[in-house]
Design a protein around this nucleic acid. Structure first.
Lengths: 264, 264
DNA sequence: TTGATGGAGATGTCAGACATCTATCGTCGG
DNA sequence: CCGACGATAGATGTCTGACATCTCCATCAA
């Protein structure tokens, strides 16, 4: 067999790190990674479901459940009586259906992510921010202000707001300096949530708007006044449905191209 | 029972009009419509799967398959051992994950859709258009140019390109005047595809870009020069994976707000 | 040459059983 | 009185095996 799956080492999907998600979700995640890494080529055919079942050591119904997830997300296409195929243009990290962070987005474009003008502070939430995060106005939030760079070019200006009440480890408050140090090293807020706070982001709801750069934004992003900007304001939701973070991101128009898979 | 589903008349999902899609997809579509219409309220709990199974007259596995589709699309949320719930903020027609047309988008916002400056013509495809539609440069396409209005306000400038070879009914060419008459009456390209050409659009892949209005666009949309515009260039794909249409739409910035559900 | 036909192989659907998780409520001990 | 614990009901998750249906393709007959 020249099937890519056959040459992959067997990865146990019943590991200890995944206790929170279902088997089917893990199957989907595993196959999705193989697609996004390019191991499974676009337009190629997957093994049939019984073979996938034995390979992944789960039942056929679980395989089918995972495949349904991938199909709905646009990664694969199933043709009754024929087979299951990787999509011709499967989603990538610049797809709005996938909740990837700026760091991953930059890295997947082949550039080196970085940042300048990093600011972190605690402040009372404005009415707008409190509304998005289901807080009371005045509740404290931790605010991050960053200018993100790709190969040292300024491409994104991002504002992140996280309820201060979340920064706790067994009751003890986590100092902002620790958060700062973590972000300087890892750059990703998402991994901090998972590894340090033990919280999983389930999904995000993003609002997309076109903007023209006013003076402040033009200076931050080093672009001419009036340049086009894509604004994505996103609320990240946890497993229990509660808002975990609000991120307000401003993308230089020609730095990235965003796509969306729209199902009928 | 005060369950909304119980008071719904039974809708046979094995009808003749749906021969092309699977049972699970029809289940998902039916429940999705109930959610988007507001019959099933946000945050409310669905009946359990065995009850849904008997109500919809399909097996529990088919119900589960349909629910998986809805879950992945952000309409519902399942909690193991607890139940299935309508999402707090389920997707609406202004969601980029859903392939709704401009007409439906305007109507769902509570406004009356219309258009001015309607143009239809056949012309050879440019290199760009041919590439998107998997044609050879020079192949004929039907081009639609429309300024769409919401309550008589100009909100979208849209360009649609469809391979001329698709406009056939049992071998006979469909005259452009008929297409024109249909669009004047129904305004929707999607229904024309389904009802007149017998073709189903399976999904679309959209590219989202922020723009500043240059002179031509500013005139068409009656907005100041340099105003922000959201450009969505979308390729609609049929059930067999072939491109059916290319639509290039320019949205006045403050006319609509687009959202996207981003799953992790 | 062409149309019908049948088989192989794939996904789709069904049925029933069991596994596992969650919330709740009672019981028991402090 | 109150908290910890366990039983239990009820929900979703997983497994198994069977059958249905669709597609493609090779074969065969007109």
């Amino acid at each position: 067999m020249d099937n890519p799956l056959k040459s992959q080492p067997y990865v146990p999907i019943n590991g200890d790190d995944y206790d929170n998600s279902s088997l089917a979700q893990r199957v989907a995640e595993q196959l999705r990674n193989l697609i996004m890494e390019g191991t499974l080529a676009p337009d190629s055919q997957l093994p049939n479901e019984p073979d996938l079942s034995t390979f992944l050591r789960v039942s056929r119904s679980t395989v089918r459940s995972g495949l349904t997830i991938l199909e709905q997300a646009g990664f694969i296409q199933r043709r009754w009586g024929v087979g299951t195929f990787i999509s011709k243009n499967p989603p990538t990290y610049n797809n709005l259906n996938i909740n990837s962070g700026v760091t991953q987005l930059i890295r997947s474009s082949g550039a080196e992510p970085g940042f300048v003008e990093f600011l972190i502070s605690a402040r009372p939430a404005s009415e707008h921010i409190a509304g998005r995060l289901s807080l009371e106005p005045g509740d404290e939030v931790v605010a991050l202000e960053r200018v993100r760079t790709a190969n040292d070019r300024r491409v994104v200006f991002s504002l992140d707001y996280i309820p201060k009440a979340l920064f706790r480890d067994q009751g003890a408050e986590i100092p902002l300096t620790e958060v700062e140090n973590y972000l300087v090293e890892h750059q990703s807020m998402y991994t901090f949530f998972r590894e340090r706070l033990g919280m999983e982001i389930h999904h995000g709801i993003a609002r997309i708007r076109p903007l023209a750069a006013e003076a402040y934004m033009a200076e931050k992003l080093a672009i001419p006044y009036g340049s086009s900007i894509l604004n994505i304001e996103q609320v990240d939701i946890g497993n229990d449905g509660e808002p975990l973070a609000l991120s307000d991101e401003y993308y230089v128009a020609d730095a990235f191209t965003f796509y969306s898979y729209r199902s009928n």
